[in-house]
Design a protein around this nucleic acid. Structure first.
Lengths: 247, 247
DNA sequence: TTGCTCCTCACGTCACGTGAGGTGGC
DNA sequence: TTGCTCCTCACGTCACGTGAGGTGGC
């Protein structure tokens, strides 16, 4: 066994050792990103110790989400600034995160709405999307970010609980309204407190979000916003009930 | 103007109205996803009212992150379950989110470390990554999720502030150690309080994360973990100082 | 001769972007 | 004839996956 034997790897051995596929190594060779330092007479690629070190770096950088082109530049060209590259990459990830969160939140809202509706159809999905878009217009991008963080914190179960709580609250309120209860009646204090709590849980205590929320409900059709649970009279009654608590 | 004129669009008009490119419409035509109901003698595509409705749905569903194949199935085949599709999609987004967050956190940690080091090189990046991997082994996947949420909440500025605070704290501590101050001396109470605060800010009050953190520092080399700021004697001194507070 | 590892094409992925080269209606 | 809108190929993207068809060493 010559020292050369001990330090060289065939492509399959190297691939297994570094957790990449043989095809990936072929690809890196094609790109000139990792060209084996030697070949056997039959054309077998032989990777030396230096090649292994280079592959290790490639794997690490790829794991950070860099493209092969960026990795090439980092490893070969001295031109590129490491710090710049990383902060650009970080910015891109940050943007991607908020995009994905937004998508997730939308999809979550739609899923929930469809699960509650009697017959989940494409048509009702489209309608839900439209209602959602209307609501989204009332919040600034910063408020959207805030709300997304808030939902993250609460988790989807707590959000579903809150929605059920709202439904229950409005069901009770409808009974009172139909019974002709005075909105100022102290027996509604419990409902006042709970609705204030639920609003707080949603806004996270942010006053500007609270105001936006108020604008949505006072401007748009409550029946559409609540997908049927709250009609105009009930919402008007609810407003009066809350106004008592606020004064 | 016949009614047909009023209800038909050329490809460019439709594209502009719906916010898609002409090329995308060509692509949908090729796939059979949206085939214009008519063509002029010269081969111009003419889209009718039904086509417009279909395109609207395509755009909405694409906006939810569905693939064109999935959209095809939803629009044509009655086979696919809408609810299933959405929850699968939601799951995929959730996984993608935690993957991206993890990447972002790693990259953030590396960026910070490099910014603090004297000469940010590829070599130091690799070393930092290795240190990071070592630390990551001490936390369970759930704890990683927790920590990610915690960092999200704090924001990157607060995290950098905390790191600076730690550096300052250890700088002070080194002075005391060199001066031979007894670890139990009450003049170290301020440091005890602040370090407890900083740990709490990191763990978010989670005891299991606190324990994992303790295991990291008592097992691994403090100099490597802190990238030089805390050597073994200083860490031993720090442990004694904290032990006083705990008793 | 049989296995095993390796080799080089070369197409496919996903949703289009981007020309190239050409035609119909005002 | 000049613009404008449209048409149909067809290659490129990114990092490989997945065969197809074939060769060298034990």
């Amino acid at each position: 066994m010559s020292p050369a034997d001990a330090e060289q790897f065939q492509i399959g051995e190297l691939a297994k050792a570094c957790g990449v596929t043989v095809r990936a190594l072929h690809h890196y060779d094609d790109l000139g990103l990792l060209v084996p330092s030697e070949r056997t007479y039959a054309g077998y690629r032989l990777y030396g110790a230096e090649d292994v070190r280079r592959l290790y770096r490639i794997v690490v950088l790829r794991g950070l989400g860099l493209s092969l082109a960026e990795i090439s530049e980092l490893l070969d060209g001295a031109g590129i600034e490491l710090g710049d590259l990383l902060s650009r990459q970080l910015g891109a990830l940050e943007r991607q995160l908020s995009e994905t969160r937004r998508l997730r939140d939308r999809l979550g809202a739609i899923s929930d709405a469809l699960a509650r509706s009697d017959e989940p159809s494409l048509q009702s999905l489209i309608e839900t999307m439209e209602a959602l878009k209307v609501v989204e217009r009332y919040y600034t991008p910063e408020q959207h970010e805030q709300l997304a963080r808030r939902r993250e914190q609460l988790g989807s179960d707590a959000i579903k609980d809150a929605e059920r709580a709202w439904e229950e609250l409005f069901a009770q309120l409808r009974v009172e309204m139909n019974a002709g209860t005075d909105p100022a009646d102290p027996r509604l204090d419990g409902i006042r407190t709970r609705s204030a709590e639920l609003v707080r849980a949603f806004t996270g205590g942010d006053a500007s979000i609270g105001r936006s929320l108020g604008r949505v409900w006072s401007t748009e059709d409550p029946a559409k916003l609540s997908r049927g649970t709250v009609d105009s009279p009930l919402h008007a009654y609810f407003s009066k009930v809350c106004a008592v608590g606020a004064s």
